[in-house]
Amino acid sequence: MSATLATRGLGDKLTGLFWRKPNLLLMLLLMPPLIWLGLVYLGSLAALLVQSFYSIDEFSGVVVPEFTLRTYGELFRAQNMDIILRTLMMSASVTIGCAVLAFPIAYFAARYARGPWKAAFYLGVMLPLWSSYLVKIYAWKLILAKEGIIGWAAGATGTTPILEAVLSIPGIGGNSLSTSFLGTWMVFVYVWLPYMILPMQASLERVPQSMLEASADLGASRAQTFRTVVLPLALPGVIAGSIFTFSLTMGDYIIPQIVGTSARFIGLAVYQLQGTAGNIPLAAAFAVVPIVIMVIYLMLAKRAGAFDAL
């Protein structure tokens, strides 16, 4: 019997080849996905950038394929700056809303839920996260409609005046919840809430029970423990979650189209500019804005150590 075995066919020959040249197999594996992502995705992003440096001929409405910064200059017009600022305000307030609502759920699931309750909480957060986006928005159109369940509940409990008072607040109110800023905000918070809960729970689960006990042993009250131990340790999770809520809100154009005032957000502006207005260069320039904001946001988040909680 020999020290080595005979090659039995093509499979063995190729295996030998892969063994002698380990990078060959790696390249063969990576080639198709890299060609796809590189060509389709990075190529498209490049196309977006290229388009954003083109401009549109104001008279004929035809795209002029020449390099110019004029399209970016248009972003600084008052009406366009309004859109960008409004979007940022909405993203920030949605992120805060999500963080506040998510915390008790994440905290309870991480610290107190055990066994089947743990699984129930996990499924209870995961299913809404994955289930149909449009169906969720549609559900809120039903809820927020003037004749819908909130109006009915207000009437049944005699709180209609409170609802009307809220709706009459300038800036966030409106004719009904479904045509108010407040309504848009509520739907955003609802739709992106699970994206905040999961990373928050993950980072809270990393707070060892012993650390909480140590804090209690040292004489900290429950509130002190919470403020000085739990919150700082949960912060990376909050930041990780906020990456999702911020980015998703900033890029969304479906929700403000269905629920809310007619005021535009970045996503809606991009959609309308490339569609009905046919101004692809300006749409592209608008789409670059969230990229820039997210890059800055991610750099800040990275410094805060948020990526370990993803």
């Binding site: 019997m1 020290a3 080595t4 075995l5 295996t15 030998g16 063994w19 002698r20």
Partner: peptide
């Protein structure tokens, strides 16, 4: 065994 891959070594 310089050119022999693991699966063909009688080891």
């Amino acid at each position: 065994v310089s050119e022999v891959p693991p699966h063909l070594r009688n080891v």
